[in-house]
């Protein structure tokens, strides 16, 4: 049980770190990828919380497709935040 708690804390810090990086970086592509990473780690948390359906959906839709369309849109607009 204690191992699971440690893993949860590590994942929590990963998610928070990725989220802060996504907000603070000037490179929008990195920001989108960091948001995708945060969402992927959250999907592992879903798995730990016994929600496999949600984990699959979050990994494929929340992390995968959302990041893909963000990257497409950034490619069509501009990569750098002023």
């Amino acid at each position: 049980m204690i191992e699971l708690t440690i893993i949860s804390w590590i994942m929590a810090f990963l998610v928070i770190g990725a989220a802060i990086y996504a907000i603070e970086t000037k490179d929008l592509i990195s920001a989108a990828i960091a948001a995708g990473v945060a969402s992927l780690v959250v999907s592992i948390m879903f798995l730990v919380l016994q929600a496999p359906d949600v984990a699959i959906t979050e990994a494929s839709i929340g992390a995968g497709l959302t990041m893909a369309i963000f990257v497409y849109a950034i490619g069509r607009t501009g990569r750098w935040e002023e």
Partner: peptide
């Protein structure tokens, strides 16, 4: 943030948080 793309990235993070 002032960049609109950044705002929407922030919104998607917020949605992830609510789902969790």
């Amino acid at each position: 943030k002032k960049n609109l793309m950044k705002i929407f990235i922030a919104l998607s993070l917020m949605e992830t948080g609510v789902n969790l």
